[in-house]
Design a binder for these strands. Structure first.
Length: 225
DNA sequence: GGACAGATCGCCT
DNA sequence: GGCGATCTGTCCC
């Protein structure tokens, strides 16, 4: 058996254009180290692109630049964590182009599942027993991984000294062996339909941890094989 | 499976 | 002052 080691992503790994990065992240491992040393790991299975300037669904549409979205303009690999609906967080990572970022929408929990459960506090008995329910949404994964604006916003994921949050490549995981579903983004119905429909959401076909499956797109993939 | 209402507050206009 | 890149429970088919 060859020994294959997990490697942490570095600056050049993050230096990609938004769509390329969203696809590149699929299958990678997001790792969170808590203050008490506990480790939480999840495989990234769903991502979404938010482009700059021309993207009407993006916080940076029209070049808007405010204190909140400043991380979208910072170097590739910078965390953009913002609060929404007064009580939830969304976790993005800035890409190469200024003003663009990739939203992490879902993870498949791999390690620290009991800790994630304790953070999520799920009431529904069936969901409670299913790890796939822990991180299958952008704000759920923030709760499960203890990612908030206070502790992770503007963090540099390419900084090898940063031991709070980072991403590793899993050499045993080959994205080519999976189908990737390309579909429209979630929760942006109010923007001009052209941009609402744009296929800027990506997920690994067959993962049990997807926030919202697109059965039509999956059927088309089935037809092509 | 889908539709809908309510929670709740930082951010931007 | 109004509005969310969401989640949850409820109601209905």
């Amino acid at each position: 058996m060859n020994k294959v080691s997990f490697t942490r992503l570095i600056t050049e790994d993050f230096n990609r254009e938004c769509k390329d990065m969203a696809l590149y992240f699929l299958g990678k491992i997001l790792i969170r180290k808590l203050e008490d040393g506990r480790i939480l790991k999840g495989r990234i299975v769903e991502t979404e692109c938010y482009l700059g300037n021309e993207d009407k669904a993006s916080h940076s549409y029209g070049g808007r630049r405010t204190p909140r979205n400043e991380p979208m303009y910072m170097p590739a690999g910078t965390c953009y964590v913002y609060q929404t609906y007064g009580m939830y967080f969304c976790f993005n990572i800035s890409s190469k182009e200024s003003g663009a970022a990739v939203l992490l929408r879902a993870l498949e929990p791999l390690e620290g599942i009991d800790t994630m459960k304790s953070f999520r506090n799920i009431r529904n008995e069936k969901q409670k027993e299913n790890p796939h329910c822990l991180c299958n949404g952008p704000s759920k994964l923030c709760i499960a991984m203890d990612i908030s604006k206070d502790n992770c916003n503007k963090l540099d994921l390419s900084d090898q000294e940063n031991d709070m949050l980072w991403i590793e490549d899993d050499p045993n995981f080959k994205l080519e062996e999976f189908s990737v579903v390309e579909t429209s983004r979630i929760g942006i119905d109010k923007v001009e339909s052209e941009w609402a429909k744009m296929p800027l959401r990506f997920y690994i076909y067959g993962s049990g941890s997807i926030s919202k499956r697109d059965r039509k797109a999956e059927k088309l993939l089935d037809g092509n094989t």
